[in-house]
Design a protein around this nucleic acid. Structure first.
Length: 484
RNA sequence: GGGCCGUUAGCUCAGCUGGUAGAGCAGCAGACUCUUAAUCUGCGGGUCGCAGGUUCGAUCCCUGCACGGCUCACCA
């Protein structure tokens, strides 16, 4: 209320800060500190938020915070004049101000701006969080991210890094002649992945629409059309659990390359990740939550069957039929880990369950798990010589970070796989892939042999910024609304 | 969805065995022309998440609800 009164007084006096439209900002805090030798005694004009005000009588010190950090402002009545100096003293923490003055170093060695002219550019009606402890409550940090950004410099740093990582990934692909495209977020079919979609409605078309869960099927249409190399980086939406690794809307990159296979995708994956790490962290070895992760290529490659053998001591290479697999599942006590009833499970489901149970958690260092069962990979080309397996891999770094394969381009087989998924849907699996007839039609026109990959950008960012929760790398994570 | 924990001043947090609340910072008034968590003096500040219940009396005990955190399940 006091701040509102101050504002009202300023407005009554004809010095309404909200009437100000611009300020000429010549330098940022970091430039002044890093370029001190050249800037000493030179005039600068800075702007930012008042984070601290140390009033010692006829002089005072302000910590001014801008995009890059803080710089101290020194002001006294001598340089400003008594009236202006008294006016500045009425300002509050959190106010946004502009300062003109010259650069100097205080007796204690702090690089500062000696103020000659100071202007209140914006009045903060609400006080800032406590200056020493800052804003700690996670809920408030996520709900009021602007306060989090103001109070916690490492948060600003994390989001700057987020941008750099995304830029690095684009740079890498752009340099290799990938075309960046945009495909629909809204559609009548949410396919290309196994996930529950968000449902919405078009008034104009009087039609139920879904928010996309993947960009895969549209990007492959681009390959059919002859683009040869495409990618899209953008939001996918999955109507599923929310926790430290999952946000309902998240950023994914999918890319497709004609005349390439999943081996090419593996190289691309490890190279993109290593490039981004090098670019943003200055090294390909980064510490994530106390563990050193080595991103440098090549990453370990291990088949799913070998992973289950190594970590679970179960040899699936001996299993030939679904019946044998089900017997093995019962014997090894895997029935609890299956997503469907045992009798509905095939060999692929059981192998995958064994992998998830025994191996997945162990894959801390970047690892490619290759050769997935065809049963759980409906968009993937089968392995030559073994139709029960596909040319698919997932990259793991303590969790899944990428998924890629040699794309299935046989329209007849693709049609059959969709039919199979439709049956699973009827059996109650509401995450089974939706049938996309137009996509099958596109394959009938002819898609060259193609490698494709999806990388969870948020998860990559988590590793490179040492973020514990996905909410720490999404500016405005999904939150329940506060009641009232 | 289950389990555990939390919600007290603008912020960060105390609050004993049930007797209607405290500190620091922020704010307000004042002192101080090199401070940097400035310092010093004084002052104001609360629907103790919400709704019930038990009790002479509830921030405290009980129940429900809301929101959040952790965790399990779920999440190719």
């Amino acid at each position: 209320m006091v701040r509102r009164e101050k504002l009202a007084r300023l407005q009554a006096e004809g010095r309404d800060p909200f009437a100000i439209v611009t300020w000429k900002q010549t330098h940022h805090s970091v430039e002044i500190k890093q370029g001190f030798e050249a800037l000493e005694n030179k005039d600068v004009s800075v702007a930012g938020r008042v984070m601290s005000f140390r009033d010692i009588g006829k002089a005072a010190f302000i910590d001014l915070q801008d995009r890059d950090g803080r710089v101290q402002v020194y002001l006294n009545s001598e340089a400003l004049g008594d009236e202006a100096y008294a006016h500045v003293k009425t300002w509050d923490l959190g106010d946004i101000i502009g300062v003109e003055g010259y650069v100097f170093k205080t007796r204690r060695g702090e690089i500062s701006v000696h103020a000659r002219r100071m202007v209140l550019l914006t009045k903060a009606i609400e006080p800032l969080p406590e200056k020493f402890h800052g804003l700690k409550d996670p809920e408030q940090r996520y709900r009021r991210r602007y306060l989090d950004l103001v109070m916690n410099p490492q948060v600003m740093d994390t989001f700057k890094k987020r941008t750099q990582i995304i830029r690095a990934v684009r740079e890498y692909l752009d340099a290799r002649e990938y075309i960046e495209v945009e495909t629909p977020v809204l559609g009548t079919i949410a396919s290309g992945a196994a996930a529950r979609p968000f449902v919405t409605k078009s008034n104009a078309l009087n039609l139920q629409l879904y928010l996309r869960i993947a960009t895969e099927l549209y990007l492959k249409r681009c390959i059919v059309g002859g683009m040869e190399r495409v990618y899209e980086m953008g939001k996918d939406f999955r109507n599923e659990g929310i926790d430290i690794r999952h946000n309902p809307e998240f950023t994914m990159i999918e890319l497709y390359q004609a005349y390439a296979d999943y081996n090419d995708m593996m190289e691309l994956c490890e190279n993109i990740c290593a490039y981004a790490a090098q670019k943003v962290c200055g090294t390909t070895t980064v510490t994530y939550q106390g563990t050193e992760l080595r991103f440098a290529a090549p990453w370990r490659r291990l088949t799913m069957v070998d992973a289950v053998k190594e970590y679970g001591n179960i040899d699936f290479s001996l299993v030939k039929t679904d019946e044998e697999a089900r017997a093995l599942a019962t014997e090894k006590g895997l029935t609890e880990d299956l997503k469907k009833k045992l009798k509905d499970c095939n060999k692929g489901d059981i192998l995958n369950a064994a992998f998830e149970k025994y191996a997945e958690k162990e894959l801390i260092q970047p690892t490619f798990i290759i050769d997935y069962p065809a049963d759980i990979s409906p968009l993937t080309k089968q392995k030559p010589g073994d139709p029960s397996m596909t040319e698919r891999f997932e990259a793991f770094i303590g969790r899944e970070i990428a998924n890629a394969y040699s794309e299935l381009n046989d329209p007849i087989v693709q049609n059959d796989r969709f039919q199979q998924q439709a049956k699973e849907r009827e059996l109650g699996d509401d995450e089974a892939y939706m049938f996309d007839a137009d996509f099958v039609s596109s394959l009938e026109v002819g898609m060259p042999p193609t490698g494709g990959m999806g990388i969870g950008i948020d998860r990559l960012i988590m590793f490179l910024t040492d973020a514990y929760s996905i909410r720490d790398i999404i500016l405005f994570p999904t939150m329940k609304p506060v009641n009232q």
